[in-house]
């Protein structure tokens, strides 16, 4: 079977199976977020924990330039190359003309102000679990960032993945906002850690393997995955592979040093630049979550 057909068939199944109506973008209520006022300082913490700048800053930006969210970084994947857009408060080229509810729709539903589906390279699959208050505060903080007049570039995604409407079907299959680590009596540390890991930090987007359509395999949650760029692997955080103590994990998130005093590289260096700015309580909460991860399912391992 040709590569083209291999790609076409699953896309056709998705498109035909779920239908046009079902793929319509969902949004928050039109009066939602209308009266909310955000706390800029708190929003900065949300912004840092969510790692927005790691992907939306210009390629190679460092220092204060990391807060200029001009976009331009490329994210190669089996479906094509995604290019992070300008989300600075510039009214023409960024999101300066958005309302707060537009940001809420982007984060919670993966939908643009024009009612188009976003590609899940933007991790709304994780951000969909965000608290409303965090969105309000994040919006307030993002208004304070410097505008950039750089134009967003089109993603380089071929047929059939360039049919955005089909992403409605993808969302029906894979946009699942249930917590993966479930249970109501997790305690304050694990509950906070779960929020930081599964919602803001969107750790699973890289650390969990994906199926052929790019959906996260929840049975292999945090079990490690091939690097989407095609070279290297993203390490497992599950207890069968990661033997670090909670203190080791928290120290790594603070300094980038492993217990052997190797240091974080690749995209994880960006992550550590963010987690290093969180409170030590938040880092400890993330560490507690990681230590509480179950073993991956053996049935579909491999």
């Amino acid at each position: 079977m040709s590569k083209f057909l291999k790609l076409l068939i699953p896309a056709a199944i998705v498109a035909a199976g779920v239908g046009w109506v079902a793929t319509a973008p969902q949004t928050v209520a039109s009066d939602a977020f209308a009266d909310a006022t955000g706390d800029v300082e708190r929003g900065k913490q949300v912004f840092t924990a969510a790692g927005c700048a790691s992907c939306h800053a210009a390629p190679g930006a460092s220092g204060a330039d990391k807060l200029v969210l001009s976009g331009g970084q490329e994210f190669p994947s089996p479906f094509g190359t995604f290019i992070a857009p300008n989300i600075s408060p510039d009214a023409q080229r960024g999101i300066g003309d958005w309302q707060m509810r537009d940001l809420a729709n982007a984060l919670l539903h993966g939908v643009s102000p024009e009612g188009q589906h976003y590609y899940p390279a933007f991790p709304f699959t994780s951000y969909a679990r965000m608290d409303d208050r965090d969105i309000v505060d994040l919006w307030a903080y993002m208004q304070t960032l410097p505008p950039s007049s750089d134009a967003s570039q089109d993603h380089n995604v071929g047929f059939p993945f360039n049919i955005r409407r089909a992403l409605g079907g993808w969302k029906m299959l894979f946009l699942n906002t249930d917590w993966v680590m479930d249970g109501n009596d997790l305690g304050p540390d694990l509950t906070r850690g779960r929020y930081l890991v599964e919602a803001l930090g969107h750790c699973a987007e890289c650390h969990t393997p994906r199926n052929v359509l790019g959906g996260l395999d929840r049975g292999q949650w945090m079990a490690g995955a091939p690097d989407p760029s095609g070279t290297g692997t993203i390490p497992a955080l599950t207890p069968d592979k990661l033997t670090w103590s909670a203190q080791d994990i928290a120290y790594y998130l603070e300094t980038g040093f492993t217990p052997d005093f190797d240091s974080a590289g690749g995209h994880m260096a960006n992550v550590v630049a963010n987690t290093g700015q969180l409170s030590s309580e938040d880092r400890a909460a993330i560490a507690a979550y990681v230590k509480a991860l179950p073993m991956p399912d053996t049935a579909d391992a491999g």
Binding site: S263, A269, N270, V272
Partner: peptide, 16 residues
């Protein structure tokens, strides 16, 4: 020190 380690690794080391 750690900032200089990861800054260089980010640019010049193949991620493991």
């Amino acid at each position: 020190l750690g900032a200089t380690c990861s800054d260089c690794h980010k640019s010049f080391r193949i991620p493991q």
